[in-house]
């Protein structure tokens, strides 16, 4: 395996259930994390719904895969950026989102928030700074 470490930015733009993009994006994130790359997620547009609290899919006959986002910290995924404007446009605040954490090895495994709110200007630099942008 290559020893190169690249920054992978996964841009999640779609609602979790109407299409399969969110679920299959998460599958790529999990595999990508196993490659020991610098993996970061960005949620924008309807993609912010992917990480909302209290998802209940019982009536649509689909699996609720939102708990998996909570496990990403254990895969060393530390940064989950969320577009501020996308939240506002949908009447959501950060309190509507899952409480996502990662543990900082360098600070005695202190729990830290994974979610970082960003505006559209900051999103531009996130995409510029990433080596690989995968958009779903």
């Amino acid at each position: 395996m290559s020893s190169v470490i690249k920054q992978f930015l996964y841009v999640n733009r779609k609602a979790p259930y109407g299409t399969v993009y969110a679920l299959e994006s998460l599958e790529v994130v999990l595999i990508g994390a196993a490659f020991e790359q610098d993996v970061r997620l960005l949620f924008m547009d309807d993609g912010v719904f992917q990480i909302t609290k209290g998802q209940d899919t019982a009536d649509i006959g689909m699996k609720n895969f939102s708990p998996t986002y909570g496990a990403l910290g254990d895969y060393d995924v530390k940064y989950m950026y969320v577009c501020k404007q996308s939240l506002e446009e949908r009447g959501l605040t950060v309190d509507d989102l899952l409480d996502l954490k990662w543990e900082d090895e360098d600070e005695d495994w202190a729990e830290k928030d994974s979610i970082i709110l960003v505006d559209r200007e900051e999103m531009k630099s996130l995409m510029t700074d990433a080596d690989v942008v995968l958009s779903f």
């Binding site: 690249k6 992978f8 790529v28 595999i31 990508g32 490659f35 958009s135």
Partner: peptide, 17 residues
């Protein structure tokens, strides 16, 4: 597997979706 996509991202200069 999906590892082939990640490897593609690591090895190529550009990944175009």
């Amino acid at each position: 597997g999906l590892g082939q996509l990640i490897e593609g991202g690591i090895i190529a200069d550009r990944l175009v979706v």
